[in-house]
Design a protein around this nucleic acid. Structure first.
Lengths: 343, 343
DNA sequence: CTGTTAGCGCATTCAG
DNA sequence: CTGAATGCGCTAACAG
């Protein structure tokens, strides 16, 4: 294996009988340098495949063109979609993306942040874990002058720009659609009480009910913790076996809705004519499951692009004072699970 | 915003009246340094939250503890699972992971490689695009002394260690299962001719047929290019409407199988009693679709861990001569779509 | 238009 | 046991 040692500015300066700084400037076409030397240097560099040592450049400029991205879970349709958008946008701007996951554990999130900080990312894009309340580990970034942008799962206890989806409105529209189909006893399998998205969706659900004078009952609201298929299944069972069973389920996310569907199918309930089901997030599974699951699309790819674009702007303007909040609109996707036959 | 300038070794040396080099050595408990100074330096560093400037350290040592990871697609159950494993393993070893996607385009893959190389990753983990044949852009890594490990979608034209799944055996078992259920006219919706995994799976399919003396017909083999649901749907239609329709479909991946299932359901065929369907990869959708799709699990998470572990080993041993090939076993998951009723 | 000088923060060799 | 000196590769202020 021939390990060719890399060509440096010094080498080309020596070879051309000029100084290192001239070579350096020539390469970036500094106006002070004559056309001739610029051409000479560029030609030599080209011919010998000169590649600047980015470790040195970055050290010198103390920036890396690397951006940290932390999500709760990687194997997750929504988050991987966001990541995809974020990476594509970053690439366009010449940035790389360091990806990490918190597994929805505060502990892991803190570790991920520290590693990112240590490896000197220029900024951070994060969707916080369900356990995260305060954000001391995030403010470390700010105090080092590195911008942070929160997206989707955010905390208001940290003053950073945020990119979210209008969870309230999304939930409101979703529940309205259920009501429009004649469902009147609508259960909600919600997320944790302290998680903002979960609260927004819950509020949207409540508002849709009150705006339409539809019965409200706390007994129809259940809190998911793991946000799993199993929880959906178990809560559906519990509710359907209760004294006052609901006739529709609005679920915090599609996976939970899947559990509900599985329970209902196993128990012989007819979806949607007997019981309606509505998910949230519009994962791949929503279009694949039978019956097709109505859901609320969150435009993950676009969210990734918008968040990354915002972050890069902040990085380039050294702007730590920006506290913009971008809110994307959701899109209700109605499939069979909430669409009663017309008869 | 108070931007506290970071504490450097020089600061702490000056403060403690020692030299920079002593401070440096004390921090890493160099045996030459007295217990006393070590303690003093460590205490001071601790108290003032000294954090080494990794840009400087990395520059000095010319390494970054960053590893590049390129996959064809991020929003993809299998690949995100691999990434998840790779990142978890990297984290354990103190490495960060730079993630990028090629969108199955050679052009994008080359760009991704260059950016990674420029940002000085210590090594590269890659699953190549469908378009990639030669790997000149990959050998650039090798010639800079940076190890490359290929996984899943690999090319043999590049001498690097490889981590794959036994596609041949996986396909063989899958088709065997179809045969065991009495299917005798088994179609195969395969991947591109030049893609190794696709060829291996095709060979497994062929071997299972010949080993069991089951009819073989080229007219039952179709090549997918986009590997999409639509292709599955269209090929299923084409084959079922042909003069000699098959009674089972073995598909290159679950998404294609989904298209097949959708066509068959729409057209009134009974799965599995009339027609059997077998996928590959065991995505989430396989357990969610109705009927449940039999598939071949590839242990993505484990593959991510194994590949990353291998790469880190190579990095740490400066080993560019290793050409190991690790092959993981697949696991056949039989669900309804290929399990004929016992009557 | 170009060269000299200095230094980013740290690791390391060589002297003591 | 410790300090001084050197340099990694590049940029930029300063001086001609």
């Amino acid at each position: 294996m021939i390990e060719k040692k890399k060509l440096t500015l010094k080498d080309i300066a020596k070879e051309l009988g000029i100084s290192v700084s001239t070579a350096s400037r020539a390469l970036k076409e500094h106006p002070d340098i004559s056309k001739d030397t610029i051409r000479a240097v560029k030609e030599y560099a080209e011919a010998h495949h000169y590649v600047p040592n980015f470790l040195a450049v970055n050290f010198r400029k103390s920036r890396t063109f690397n951006i940290g991205l932390i999500v709760p879970e990687l194997v997750h349709h929504f988050f991987s979609t966001v990541i995809s958008g974020a990476i594509d946008e970053a690439k366009k701007c010449g940035y790389n993306v360091l990806v990490s996951q918190s597994n929805d554990l505060l502990k892991d999130e803190i570790v991920a942040c520290r590693t990112m900080l240590a490896s000197s990312v220029d900024g951070l894009l994060i969707s916080i874990s369900n356990e995260t309340q305060e954000g001391e580990h995030l403010s470390e970034f700010l105090s080092e002058g590195k911008p942070v942008v929160q997206f989707d799962k955010i905390t208001d206890s940290l003053d950073t720009p945020k990119v979210t989806v209008d969870d309230f409105e999304g939930a409101y529209q979703a529940v309205n659609q259920l009501i429009s189909q004649g469902y009147r006893k609508i259960a909600h399998l919600r997320g944790r009480n302290k998680v903002k998205n979960a609260n927004e969706r819950f509020e949207g659900y409540r508002r849709a009910l009150t705006d339409n004078n539809v019965e409200i009952s706390d007994s129809w609201v259940k809190s998911c913790v793991a946000i799993s298929e199993k929880e959906g299944y178990d809560f559906a069972k519990e509710l359907m076996e209760s004294a006052n069973p609901p006739d529709a389920f609005f679920c915090i996310t599609d996976l939970v809705a899947l559990g509900v569907i599985n329970y209902l199918k196993n128990s012989g309930y007819k979806i949607p004519n007997q019981i309606g089901v509505m998910g949230f997030s519009n994962w791949k599974l929503a279009e694949v499951v039978s019956p097709g699951l109505s859901s609320v699309d969150q435009h993950g790819y676009e969210m990734g692009i918008k968040s990354m674009k915002l972050l890069i702007e902040l990085i380039q303007n050294h702007d730590l004072e920006n506290h913009d909040e971008i809110q994307l609109k959701t899109k209700l996707i109605v499939r069979e699970s909430s669409l009663r036959n017309q008869d």
